[in-house]
């Protein structure tokens, strides 16, 4: 113990990550500010001056935001229900939420191709009841991407929330009611604040996940509804414009980190406010 040999055990992992994560990422980031003779930041404003690219950037943000909001709205009541279910049955809900999470994203996105396709269930149903005459173009739209992403990430929201809500003692609600709070007030004053940490974690997982997902936008958005990740792929492997691919990749990294850091900062600030 004296010679602290055990710290040697960290070296393989550190070496691996530096060699194959830090260096490659650094090269990508660096290439966006290098020119033949020197340095430049001009590529970033140029990206945002291009209407087409700017559209894709804000579409990606919009899709991620809507997905997160929808996941929160669907996940919050559901998780509360699960957290108040007897422990025996809670496991079943957890299994049903974890199962899609472990299923291939290709499979999960593919299921929405069946549902939203020209001959899919939704169109089939709408035509049959005479609501529409011609099948709608539901696939390769922002709508289909959002549905796919919501389907992909809703379990993460539910699991994050259940984890926190499970620990809220039901007696707290009874205590609040005994002190004169209505059921709704008790919920808003007790459950909501206590489950905020879970909501923050869930929201940041869903938002960053939707922001960077590739498989689902590729299958359900295609060329018609591009997002940043499909743009990276297209630039790199369809157009062979690696300079541009690096730029989009860097913008994705910067955006993701900004989001993660601000969520941490805000929730940290919020929690400190609560304590003080």
């Amino acid at each position: 113990m004296k010679y602290r040999l055990h710290y040697l055990l960290l070296i393989p992992a550190i070496l691996f990550l530096i060699l194959f994560l830090v260096i490659p990422l650094f090269i990508t980031l660096l290439s966006t500010v290098r020119t033949d003779g020197g340095w430049t930041l001009s590529r970033y404003p140029v990206f945002f001056q291009d209407f087409y690219l700017r559209d894709i950037y804000f579409r990606t943000l919009k899709i991620a935001a809507i997905t997160t909001l929808a996941a929160a709205v669907m996940g919050f009541p559901t998780s509360y229900y699960i957290s108040r279910t007897a422990k025996k049955y809670r496991g079943i809900y957890i299994i049903l939420a974890v199962f899609p999470l472990l299923t291939s994203p290709v499979v999960r996105s593919f299921s929405w191709m069946i549902i939203l396709g020209k001959n899919g269930i939704v169109n089939d149903f709408l035509v049959r009841i005479g609501f529409i005459g011609e099948p709608l173009n539901l696939l390769y739209t922002e709508f289909s991407v959002i549905m796919g992403l919501l389907y992909l990430f809703l379990p993460l929201m539910i699991l994050s929330l259940v984890g926190v809500m499970e620990n809220i003692d039901s007696e707290l609600l009874r205590a609040a009611e005994s002190l004169g709070a209505s059921r709704l007030t008790a919920f808003l004053k007790i459950v909501l604040p206590l489950s905020l940490p879970g909501l923050v974690i869930g929201a940041s997982l869903v938002f960053t996940g939707s922001l960077t997902a590739y498989t689902t936008p590729m299958l359900l958005g295609g060329d018609k509804t591009q997002v940043l990740s499909t743009l990276v792929y297209k630039n790199a492997l369809a157009l062979f414009d690696w300079q541009q691919a690096s730029l989009v990749a860097s913008i994705m990294v910067i955006t993701t980190f900004t989001v993660v850091i601000s969520i941490n900062w805000f929730s940290g600030k919020f929690n400190r406010g609560e304590a003080g």
């Binding site: 090269i27 990508t28 922001l211 960077t212 590739y214 792929y233 690096s246 990749a249 994705m252 980190f257």
Partner: peptide, 14 residues
């Protein structure tokens, strides 16, 4: 934390 598509692209490059 790193977007996988970015990581994939960077590794490919490198």
């Amino acid at each position: 934390l790193i977007p996988q598509i970015v990581f994939g692209f960077s590794l490919f490059n490198y």
